[in-house]
Simulated assay, not measured.
Amino acid sequence: IPALVQVQTGSEIVFTVKVDAAVFSMSWAYQTGDTLALWTQSGTSDNSVPQFRGRLSISATQLQIGAAQLNDAGFYTVEVVPTSSTGLVKNSQSVELKVFDPVAGVSLTVPSAAVEQKNVSLSCTWTGGTEVTAQWKKDSTAITPDSRITISGGFLVINPARRDDAGEYSCTASNNVSAQTSTKSLTVYYSPKKCVGGGDVLVGQVVRLTCTSTSLPPATFSWESDGQPVSSGAQDSGVLSLQTFSTNESGRYVCTATNSVTRGTSTQSYNLAVVDVCFDGGEVAGIVIGAFLGLLIIVLLILFLVVFVRRRR
């Protein structure tokens, strides 16, 4: 028989004994020392231990216990007595039984508004199961804790969060006999970078310019760029939503507010810079430091070669 049998509550427990000779009798005992059942060539008997009453079945090779319960866990010992004609002596062996409640009701909770550079916490809970552990994945890849990511059972903390932390997260709660998975998407919100050296928006992004005016009746608005009309997307709207496609969309944008009764007007203007590449202060500093270190290494190599050549002379 195997040294360990694992089942979930409510299932049938089956201990199977492999025998190589004729058996005269086989008896099973629980860890309390109580004999559970006996099989002989002439029949079977059940000692009706209260815990197992009505759930036992024994044969020449098996002990079956129906509707497993958590308190059925423990060690069981079988004693086999061969027939006298085999010339063999009786022997015994123990098997450990572990019983688990199956995992149920797994739920993953993610924040509705995770913000870049802030603390982000995800939690995984379950309503049922014994000896449950949680495994975390992002986009189907196991998550490894590091200096930013802490995992403690059903809790995952990212501090600080980055925009590339966005994705599909899954938590699998499991024990030795069952598992359930819950999956949720995490969105990380972030502010636009302030580009060093100028630039308001990257090519491909949407920029919103807002124009306001106090007027009675309410003013209507129109937009121009370098003297050419620009559609705001909503007629007479004071908000211009511009999907950028190239740096050629840089320029001076003018909003004109018009009172339909007095015919009075007022204007507001914006200088918009659309750029291909945007580096913030930290990125620029990193580039400068990297370039300096690279130059320093080159200088040191040159000095080393000069010294080496002079010594050989």
Rank of each mutant, 00 (worst) to 15 (best):
S121D: 04
E116D: 14
S174Y: 02
G204H: 10
K194A: 09
G105S: 08
T133Y: 00
T77S: 12
V307P: 11
D226C: 03
Q268Y: 08
R263L: 15
V201A: 01
V275R: 03
I58T: 05
S174A: 09
T127E: 06
T83S: 11
T61C: 12
L293D: 11
T130E: 03
L88F: 09
S48C: 14
L38F: 03
T172S: 04
S112F: 07
Q62S: 14
V206N: 15
M26P: 03
L305P: 06
W136K: 00
P192F: 11
S241Y: 02
S269T: 12
G129A: 00
S92R: 08
P2I: 07
S269L: 02
G197E: 09
Q64V: 14
T187D: 15
F75C: 07
A114M: 10
I289Y: 07
A161V: 05
T83N: 14
K137Q: 11
V95K: 04
C195D: 06
R310H: 07
S45V: 01
T265I: 10
L300T: 08
V78G: 04
F100M: 04
L156Y: 01
E12Q: 15
L305R: 02
I151N: 01
Q180W: 01
G198Y: 09
V106I: 01
F100T: 02
R311L: 11
A273P: 04
V274R: 00
L202Q: 11
S170A: 13
Q268N: 13
G105C: 06
G33I: 05
D72T: 07
G167Y: 03
T61A: 13
T83P: 05
F221M: 08
K193Q: 13
L301K: 07
S232F: 07
F245H: 15
S246N: 14
Q235M: 12
Q268E: 10
V306H: 13
L301P: 06
V110L: 00
A234N: 14
Q6L: 04
A21F: 09
A3D: 15
Q268I: 07
P102K: 06
V274T: 04
D165T: 01
R53M: 12
G290I: 09
T109W: 04
E116G: 02
V132I: 03
L272Y: 02
C255Y: 04
L70F: 04
F52G: 05
C255F: 08
A273E: 13
D280M: 10
V120T: 06
T183G: 05
V7K: 08
V277R: 13
A161W: 00
T9E: 10
L63N: 05
G286M: 01
P145H: 09
G128T: 01
R162E: 12
A179Q: 02
P229H: 10
R163M: 08
V299M: 09
T210I: 13
I298T: 10
S57K: 10
F52Q: 05
Y30L: 02
C171T: 01
N259T: 06
K18V: 12
G43Y: 11
Q243P: 05
G33D: 11
V230S: 04
S213I: 06
G198C: 05
V23L: 07
E79Y: 13
T35H: 13
N248M: 11
W39H: 04
Y253I: 08
V19A: 15
V78E: 09
R55E: 09
S232C: 12
S85M: 09
N259F: 07
A60W: 08
G105Q: 08
V120E: 01
Q228T: 13
T127K: 05
A173S: 03
T258Y: 10
V177H: 04
S45M: 10
T86E: 14
V309Q: 15
C171N: 03
L122Q: 00
